[in-house]
């Protein structure tokens, strides 16, 4: 039961990510991306990371995709402006090589001996918080500086142009 849901959800995530490659309108691509992100949140939950599943829904599918949709709305694109996927000439050999490489990787992963398969070990928010604010406190500080830098950059770039 657990495995069936996992593989079904991963199929949804992969198909939705592949649909981004072929749709025409940016809003449709954004919707497919949201579906893929939500499926990935379910995958995180099934793997035993409930905190990250919640953060995935809140941060990615909530905040970041709202930014995307807001920008698409502001740009007000018509479908005439985005032509459908026009593949450059000679893409078939490169795609075949990439597919071959992925199949090779798949073969390598299935041939290697799989270790013991036990139950799902859930790592709850408490353990994550202990790790985050214990040995990785420096990372939190670095992220704080990075977010401040991004804020300054966005304010600088979005200032009104001087005529």
């Amino acid at each position: 039961m657990h495995e069936i849901i996992f593989y079904l959800t991963s199929a949804i995530a992969v198909i939705a990510a592949g649909a981004i490659l072929i749709v025409r309108h940016p809003v449709h691509a954004a919707i497919y991306l949201i579906v893929s992100l939500l499926a990935l949140a379910l995958l995180f939950f099934l793997l035993g990371a409930p905190l990250l599943a919640a953060l995935q829904v809140m941060l990615y599918a909530g905040a970041i995709m709202v930014l995307f949709l807001f920008l698409i709305m502001m740009m007000n694109l018509r479908t005439g402006q985005n032509r459908p996927l026009s593949l450059p000439a000679g893409w078939v050999p490169a795609a075949l090589l990439a597919l071959f490489l992925w199949l090779e990787l798949l073969l390598l992963l299935t041939r290697s001996p799989s270790e013991k398969v036990g139950d799902v070990t859930t790592i709850g928010p408490k353990a994550v918080g202990n790790a985050l604010f214990g040995p990785y406190l420096l990372v939190v500080e670095a992220v704080a500086v990075l977010l401040l830098a991004a804020l300054v950059a966005v304010l600088y770039l979005s200032r009104r142009r001087q005529k």
């Binding site: 995958l43 099934l46 990787l105 992963l109 290697s112 799989s114």
Partner: peptide, 11 residues
């Protein structure tokens, strides 16, 4: 429990 290999392939 899902083996690590399958998650890596999907990723």
């Amino acid at each position: 429990m899902i083996p690590l290999n399958h998650s890596l392939a999907i990723a």
